[in-house]
Amino acid sequence: MRDVAIVSYAQTPYVRSERHRNEVEMLMPIIDEVVTKSGITRQDIGFTCSGSTDYLAGQCFSFVMAVDAVGAWPPIKESHVEMDGAWALYEAWIKIQCGEVDSALIFSFGRSSMGETAETLTLQTDPYTMAPLGPDAISMAALQARSGLDAGLYSERDLAEVAARNRRNALTNPEAQLAGEFDVDALLEAPYRVSPLRDHDCPPVTDGAAAMVIATADVARNASSKPVWIRGIDHRLDCHQLGSRDLTRSPSTELAGQKAGVGTGKIDIAELHAPFTHQEIILKNALGLDDDVRINPSGGALAANPMMSAGLARIGEASRQIAGGAAERAVAHATSGPCLQQNLVCVLEG
């Protein structure tokens, strides 16, 4: 395998609603920033790959307009996944492993504010047997949270502590959407949103975008003072039918974590894409993380959950911790689908 490093990362400020900018206008400044910081000219970037979904834009082929944010002239080698940008990173990493290109631009974007995200995600379920029943994303997550409570894996207080810690961490992240000091006892007095989940257990609705440049060793060393190396990257899938799964575990995260080599060294920090509090605990167990691992110094998806970018943002935020000297080795995780159906794990080193 060729050594590949993250050489630059940028994200928009995460907000409840981007009222005055469309997707291209959100993307242009951050794409410009990552390309400039990479030290690689636009013409020399070998490959471009993006991640997004038409169901946020409410429009077919919504990714086509995003090409305008890249400056695709002369024409570029480009691809798109209808997935979180973390999987666009995976496709770009594969392209570099083929030896075809030495660098790549990855970006992702979405404006959840334009629809009802939790209900839109109902359309992700089996259209014949599940979607007609109308389960929204929060209700499905609540089923999962309940199964863990019933199994005695965590208490509602544990979940409130996860929420309080993530939003406290977000105080140092200027791009986070929800940050602050919250008292766990006060949080637990709030009514249920969908039992056993309260508002603090759920992610905010977020508009935003993220962009990254990766490169092979030769290019990265010339381009960046502190390249962050991708030492392992793998992604796996669980079955779709919730009734066929043990919702208290994430077998696909366990497997992806093993394949990516999480356990082969000490982990300093973890950025876990856990939109719901109980999912952070499931993921921590699946990856076998010790209690001294700092989880989500950025505030994670509970502080900002830009659909289609929240996974790529975990990898980007983890790379910032390493580039800034706060960590030597980190694990970053991205998820997709109902109740953590699909999971990607990436191990980064300075």
Partner: peptide, 13 residues
């Protein structure tokens, strides 16, 4: 486009 069948990311199901 996913809207051709009305299923978001149908590869999941």
């Amino acid at each position: 486009p996913d809207m051709f069948e009305g299923v978001m990311m149908p590869e999941l199901f």
